[in-house]
Design a protein around this nucleic acid. Structure first.
Lengths: 192, 192
DNA sequence: TAATTAAGCGGACGCATCGTCCGCTTACTG
DNA sequence: CAGTAAGCGGACGATGCGTCCGCTTAATTA
């Protein structure tokens, strides 16, 4: 057995991590997230490129780290929070309601952190994030509860409308309310 | 009025266009389409980079040109072909059936030309293609016929499961039949 | 067939970004 | 306070992009 002694992070390292995340947040919000380069982030953080690469392999993983915080919050509410988003208080909300509530919460997350989502979960990379697996399991469980067949295929299909690129594209012509209305209808159509 | 004399394409130019498309088709099919570079294509086609850029601004537009042929075919069947895919013979298929038939045809297209789709319609670029506008209008019309509200939002959402990246991702675990079954269910859930 | 012309050609070039490498610095430990 | 390894950073080589411009050649005209 290897001893996985976690040997605390050095103070300067922690400080630089914080600087990097703060600088990246700014840059992502300021312009097109796809155009932010690793060098931009390093410079804005007042850190060398080597230091940056030591922690984050690429731009997307930085955006992912920033997004993670907000996603964890939602994940918590899904697992332990009040209904209809979570399972409790009042208990036993029907799966269609819970799916619609999940959709609304995700749309809200996208609306508030679109630039991070566009930086992190673009294209095929989206499916590789840990968060995607979580959302997928959640939706699949709701489909099971609603006794909908073809759950494995449908779970991904129901998450597809939440792709950041699509949300951004739709927001050019539609309001958040219109998008949420569409999602609401979709949830009820599929899960009763 | 400017005289738009179309002045026929020179013979060598036509020959090179054909060479480029043939070479690109090969390269896209051979490996990861995202890793094919413009220089690769130029070399494989036996053509200089300048020549390549004269016609195609980037890799995606080459894949798009190749895909276009197949897409046109499907578009024609949607507009003028027999039912339930097209409007005629037998006429008046219900919108849910027509949507399901459209889904099946698109899934088939993706299955047969996945490498081209991955080369052409990846990420946000997908929404900018002419083909996307066509699919969107078609789905929206079917939703109108089925008298489904929130059509503007739903049209994009119903196309989202056909994103090439998602199809490729799902095909790792699912068969084409399972995917088509999911799409079929989705079509009937939303459009009756 | 020869002369004319402009469309077409191609590869060298300049630029941006990536990701690594390694000698120097500094926070922690005893 | 000395030893040490974790951390730092910017120079560097590699890769791909897209352009530019002098040369070639297909098409046209006489």
């Amino acid at each position: 057995m290897a001893d996985t002694a976690p040997r605390r992070e050095r103070a300067d390292a922690a400080r630089n991590r914080a600087r990097v995340l703060a600088a990246a947040e700014q840059l992502f919000a300021a312009g097109d997230p796809a155009r932010v380069t690793m060098e931009d982030i390093a410079r804005a953080a007042g850190v060398g490129k080597g230091t940056l690469y030591r922690r984050f392999p690429d731009r997307a993983s930085i955006a992912e780290a920033l997004l993670d915080e907000h996603e964890r919050d939602l994940q918590d509410r899904l697992l332990r929070g009040p209904g209809p988003l979570g399972p409790g208080e009042p208990p036993g909300a029907p799966p269609a309601e819970r799916l619609a509530a999940f959709y609304a919460a995700m749309a809200d997350l996208l609306e508030r952190h679109m630039h991070l989502a566009l930086g992190a979960e673009t294209g095929a990379r989206r499916f590789a994030t840990g968060a995607y697996g979580f959302w997928r399991a959640h939706v699949r469980a709701l489909l099971a509860e609603a006794e909908v067949p073809d759950r494995d295929a449908l779970a991904d299909m129901l998450l597809a409308p939440l792709a950041p690129e699509l949300y951004a594209f739709q927001r050019r012509r539609l309001t958040p309310e219109q998008i949420t209305a569409g999602l609401h209808r979709l949830a009820h159509a599929i899960a009763g």
